[in-house]
Design a protein around this nucleic acid. Structure first.
Lengths: 237, 237
DNA sequence: AAGTGGTCTAGACCACTTG
DNA sequence: AAGTGGTCTAGACCACTTT
């Protein structure tokens, strides 16, 4: 394996261990190079890759920081529901339900835990322009989020991914989504004020942390009467 | 603007002008550096970016090539319908209709041509595992694809994007997609052997060329009974 | 002024493909 | 053996932010 990849792996380990935190700048490139006993150019390459993956954030003149999963990044990377007219806003989130339970088959497969393992389930209703548009059903493994509580969810200031990062050291870095059309069923129909059977978008998301392990399963039911799910078949991976 | 960006721009111009073609390797890095009067490292940076955007393809020991929009790349970058069971295959494509016409409002907005400008319209039916799954309705501007003919479409060997590239020098490099759920209408319902009103996925894609200008508008109607539209909220743009 | 990341250079050596 | 891209080094200078 190339040297810069070793450096990158070490930096990832340092981020995961909590050695680097979002508030404080990392050591500068010269110091990092000395610590790893490589040239500055090699450190730069490792840091550049992590920056391109939105894991680190470089700021000329200030330093390099662990990226925070704040509202702006959440919108940029994870929230992909826009108004049909092009409007784009951060949703208001209402917590509908929070409970502990045992993983079913789908959850155990998605989260890579055994069937019956303790999980937390969260139901959220997302409003855009004061209209309910998305019903989220979230499942996370209790082993990754010990003692996650309703109070934490209610009192968090930022996104739920920021809560994962700050309170549990779990850094979500990417997600796979599968999208399909389906007739809406209860209870989503009621939350979205739709008649049962109306066509809705169903999005199944598996979010992964920096090591690639699954962290969260989220099934979103989206009323696409006035909103779209947007994706980019980008040339910039 | 940084030097490597100037080099990149020049390389893009060379690709567009047809100076570089997919079959023949570009000049090697040393020669390119000499031509642009910059260091090899600067050329490398420009070429690396183009490679990361899938516009160029570097092969150690062989050389650097303009990327072909072949089946593999089409599947990788643009075709995002997978079987629910995880199967992933290149679709069989049936041409249903080909015609010339005048751009309507939606087409003129999407393709950045004036209303009433000459366009070609293509209807395709895509089969996966011998079942009709996607009904594509494609619109392109005649100004970008002069004398596009039904024969060319029928006789092409590869993907339609490869035809754009080889026959018209139009290189599609990315696409924006908006996805929504809707009840299926005719004629899609018949092609997909669905009852009118069944929930289907509707995908509106605007494909863009290397300069960012829109090239193709494609509305896809997808039967997601056994297939999903997949997307990645990637850390690797 | 001091310290950070951003760009550019020049060159060495390695890994891979082709003739 | 010759030619290609891939990695790594060492250093200069620039642009930006903070003190």
């Amino acid at each position: 394996m190339a040297l810069y990849q070793e450096v990158k792996k070490q930096l990832i380990a340092d981020i995961q261990s909590g050695r680097f935190v979002p508030e404080k700048a990392l050591p500068n490139e010269t110091d990092l190079a000395a610590r790893f006993a490589v040239s500055v150019g090699t450190v730069r390459r490792a840091v550049e890759e992590l920056a391109s993956e939105h894991i680190l954030l470089r700021q000329q003149g200030r330093g390099t920081f662990v990226a925070r999963l704040d509202q702006h990044r959440f919108m940029f990377q994870f929230f992909k529901i826009d108004g049909r007219n092009g409007s784009r806003e951060f949703p208001r989130v209402d917590l509908l339900a929070f409970s502990a339970g045992k993983a079913n088959v789908a959850e155990s497969l998605a989260l890579d835990v055994s069937i019956g393992a303790k999980v937390f389930r969260i139901d959220n209703l997302l409003y855009l322009q004061e209209q309910p548009v998305v019903h989220d059903h979230i499942t996370v493994a209790a082993s990754r989020f010990p003692q996650l509580s309703e109070e934490q969810l209610l009192q968090r200031s930022g996104t739920i991914y920021e809560l994962y990062q700050n309170a549990f050291g779990v850094v979500v870095v990417n997600a796979d989504e599968r999208v399909r059309a389906a007739p809406v069923a209860e209870p989503s129909a009621a939350w979205l004020t739709l008649g049962v059977g109306a066509p809705v978008l169903q999005v199944e998301r598996i979010a992964r942390c920096i090591t690639g392990r699954p962290v969260e399963l989220r099934v979103s039911v989206v009323n696409t009467a006035a909103h779209d799910y947007v994706a980019s078949r980008s040339n910039k991976p």
